[in-house]
Computed example of a mutant assay.
Amino acid sequence: MTSVTSLFSPVEADLHQLTENLKRLVGARHPILFAAAEHLFGAGGKRLRPAIVLLFSRATSADHEITASHRRLAEITEMIHTASLVHDDVVDESELRRGVPTVHASFGNRVAVLAGDFLFAQSSWYLANLDNLEVVKLLSQVIMDLAEGEIQQGLNRFDAGLSIEAYLEKSYYKTASLIANSCKAAGVLSEVPEAMAMNLYNYGRHLGLAFQIVDDLLDFTSSADTLGKPAGSDLSSGNLTAPVLYAMQEKPVLEGLIEREFAQEGDLDQAIALVLESKGVERSRELATHHAQLAIQQLEGLPPSPSLNVLKSLKDYVLSRSY
C-alpha cells in the first residue's frame, strides 16, 4: 500500500504549513485550547481532506499555484472535520482515536464539547472572511449535514430494517459531504466553469462514500491495535454498516441478535462471526470499488499535472488502506 506521506508529495510542504497554522489559529486564545490543539493536530492524522482540497487547488488554479484563499479553505475543512470527530467521540464515549486518547478522555467531556464548539465557530468565522458567498453556502451545508448524519445514526441504532440506501445517505452526511463540498469550493475559488465544479463535487462525493465503506469494513477485518480503537465497536454500539446489512440478507439469525441489542452473553461475538462467514465483507468491498471508480471518472477534463496524478491514485489508496 502506498504511504499517505509519499502519496501527497506535491502538497507535502503545504500540509506541513497547514498543521502549524491550525495549531496557532486554534491554540492562540487559551492554554487549554492550545493543549487540545496540540493533541488534535499532532495526533498523526492522515490529513486526507485538506490534502484533497490543496490538490484540487493546484490542479485547477492558474500555473498550479495555491492562493491564500485556497489555503484557508483547506484549514477550514480540517477544522470542521476535527470538530466533528471531537463531538463524535463524546457521543460514542470513545476512549481512543488513532491509537491515542480522545480529547474527552484526556481533558474531560466539558472541555471536549467546548473545544468542538469552538472549532465549529472558528471555522465559520474564517469561512465568512473568505468573502465568497457560494463557498460559505457550500461549507455551511456541510456543518448541517454532519449534524443530520449524527442524528440519523442515533435514531437508527439497532434498526435491523435499515436499507443500504439509508446507510449510504447517512454515510454521505457524515463523511462524503465535507469532501464533496470542499472539493467544489476549491474549484469555485479557482473560478472553474460550473460543470467542472460539479465534477469536483461528484469526485469528493464518490471518494468519500468509498472511504466510509472501507472504514466500515475495517471494523471487521482489522485488529484493534491497527485501528486505534476496539474492533467491532460500530456493531456493538448498534451502528449497522454495509457488511452487516449485506450479511443479514444471508444470515437471518443475525437480525434477531441485533434486535435484542446483543443482550445475551456471546451475542456480539456470534454476530461478528456471522458477518465474517457471509459475503458481507466481499460485497461491501465491491460497493466501495464501484464508488471509487465513479470518482475517477469525474477527473476527465482537468489538465495534466502532478496533483491530478495523485487525485487519480487516491482510488487505490482508499481501497487498499488498513487503518
Score class of each variant (00 low, 15 high):
residue 12 E to Q: 15
residue 285 R to V: 01
residue 212 Q to D: 07
residue 68 A to E: 11
residue 314 L to M: 11
residue 191 E to H: 13
residue 140 S to H: 10
residue 195 A to N: 11
residue 238 G to W: 14
residue 144 M to S: 08
residue 44 G to H: 11
residue 295 A to D: 07
residue 118 F to N: 07
residue 238 G to Q: 09
residue 301 G to W: 01
residue 247 A to S: 12
residue 9 S to W: 12
residue 246 Y to W: 14
residue 108 G to F: 06
residue 189 L to G: 08
residue 266 G to S: 10
residue 269 D to S: 15
residue 217 L to C: 15
residue 140 S to I: 04
residue 227 L to Q: 08
residue 136 V to K: 03
residue 46 K to M: 02
residue 223 S to R: 07
residue 288 A to F: 10
residue 299 L to F: 02
residue 30 H to L: 14
residue 231 A to R: 12
residue 89 D to C: 00
residue 85 L to C: 03
residue 30 H to K: 12
residue 198 M to I: 08
residue 285 R to T: 07
residue 224 A to C: 10
residue 25 L to D: 13
residue 166 A to I: 00
residue 271 A to F: 08
residue 5 T to I: 12
residue 212 Q to W: 11
residue 12 E to S: 14
residue 13 A to T: 14
residue 228 G to E: 06
residue 145 D to T: 01
residue 206 H to Q: 06
residue 177 S to L: 03
residue 226 T to D: 14
residue 214 V to K: 06
residue 69 S to E: 15
residue 237 S to N: 15
residue 23 K to D: 06
residue 252 P to R: 11
residue 81 H to E: 09
residue 155 L to G: 00
residue 23 K to A: 09
residue 181 N to A: 13
residue 49 R to I: 09
residue 17 Q to F: 12
residue 208 G to R: 10
residue 53 V to K: 05
residue 314 L to G: 06
residue 290 H to G: 00
residue 176 A to W: 09
residue 166 A to W: 00
residue 306 P to C: 10
residue 285 R to H: 14
residue 92 D to M: 07
residue 284 S to I: 06
residue 68 A to M: 02
residue 147 A to F: 04
residue 184 K to N: 04
residue 256 G to A: 05
residue 57 S to R: 02
residue 292 A to C: 09
residue 23 K to R: 15
residue 139 L to W: 08
residue 317 Y to N: 03
residue 276 L to K: 14
residue 5 T to G: 10
residue 270 Q to F: 05
residue 198 M to N: 15
residue 27 G to A: 09
residue 248 M to R: 02
